[in-house]
């Protein structure tokens, strides 16, 4: 039981940035903007959050900075893909390279620790929140470990990430903004001919993307870890995109997909150095590769037909 709870706790921890990044991608791709730059945004905002938190000693300012960095990235991506009708993949990949290089360069220049930031302490990082009565019920069988152990004790960002899922579903299916967002990713012309601005709607989607992925990045460096280390996003942006496709661009399945990837990562930590029956000791590297192998397998065939928003990836051009 304790083993399971401990694996699940880790699952929630490592899923949080995936969920945030995945929902971020959902808004952007639903609006018709493919955002392969999620990876770079995660990395950039992790760096921004760690730097500002470390300098000011205030983790909230760090979070704002993280969101600010992803906003800037989104602005560049929007400018390239909405205004200049550039290739969205190329723009996203460029941003990934930029984030990867810039964080190390600036980190080395400012802190001289090989691209890492100084460890965050005190108010400069997020801590777990104890839910009410967690102490009291911890002794109760079953409910105790689940409530006090599994559900309680996560940072505010984790709770926000999980709340963002029903919120996103509600926005998408119940609001005017959601209707237009879905429409602009499917057939932007329908919106244009109905007298609405395709560009402005897409920018709004990119802003939401930036806020969510900014939170995800800040989580990496100020909640999950206590400093920025180079390349700390380690492909989570890509995995979030894979989860998004696996989930067919729907919020609840996206949560499920992220938890699945998170679970694999948690298993990977757990099984390192453990002797398995029959197989023996599995090399660490093989375990670490597990989430990536699963990504390939899922995308290669197990997903079924994933139909992307029809206009995703295509710049909108008024024709004729």
């Amino acid at each position: 039981m304790e083993d399971i709870i401990s694996i699940l706790i880790t699952t929630i921890r490592v899923s949080t940035p995936l969920i945030l990044a995945c929902l971020a991608g959902l808004y952007s791709e639903r609006a018709g903007i493919v955002d392969i730059g999620l990876e770079g945004k995660l990395l950039g905002s992790a760096f921004g959050a760690a730097v500002v938190a470390s300098v000011t000693g205030n983790v909230w300012l760090g979070l704002l900075a993280g969101i600010g960095v992803s906003m800037m990235f989104s602005a560049v991506h929007g400018l390239a893909s909405i205004n200049f009708r550039g290739n969205q993949i190329i723009s996203g990949v460029a941003l990934n390279f930029l984030a990867s290089g810039l964080t190390v360069f600036l980190g080395a220049a400012w802190f001289g620790r090989g691209g890492n930031t100084p460890p965050l302490t005190g108010d400069a990082r997020f801590y777990g929140i104890r839910l009410p009565f967690a102490q009291e019920v911890s002794g109760v069988p079953i409910i105790g470990p689940i409530y006090s152990g599994l559900l309680s004790g996560h940072t505010i960002l984790t709770y926000l990430a999980f709340l963002a899922v029903p919120l996103t579903a509600w926005v998408l299916w119940r609001t005017r903004f959601g209707l237009r967002l879905r429409a602009v990713g499917e057939n932007p012309k329908a919106l244009d001919t109905a007298g609405m601005s395709v560009s402005w709607l897409r920018y709004k989607a990119l802003m939401i993307t930036a806020v969510l992925v900014g939170m995800g990045g800040a989580y990496l460096s100020t909640a999950q870890a206590a400093s920025f280390s180079r390349e700390m996003s380690s492909g989570r942006g890509y995995i979030a995109l894979a989860a998004l496709i696996f989930a067919k661009w729907k919020p609840y399945p996206a949560l499920g997909a992220c938890l699945l990837f998170g679970f694999l990562e948690a298993m990977q930590y757990r099984l390192q150095g453990v002797d398995l029956p029959l197989i023996g000791r599995v090399p660490t590297q093989a375990m670490q590769a597990l989430p990536y192998v699963l990504t390939i397998l899922l995308l290669a065939g197990f997903v079924g037909r994933a139909i992307a928003p029809k206009a995703a990836g295509q710049p909108y051009v008024k024709e004729r």
Binding site: R174, R176, L179, E186, N187, A190, A194
Partner: peptide, 23 residues
């Protein structure tokens, strides 16, 4: 100028919604 995977109602109100909520 229709969104294929929207319902007829959704297509009709798209851009002519009265309020922030769809209902």
């Amino acid at each position: 100028m229709l969104v294929d995977n929207f319902t007829v109602l959704e297509n009709v109100i798209l851009g002519a919604e009265d309020s922030a909520l769809l209902k």
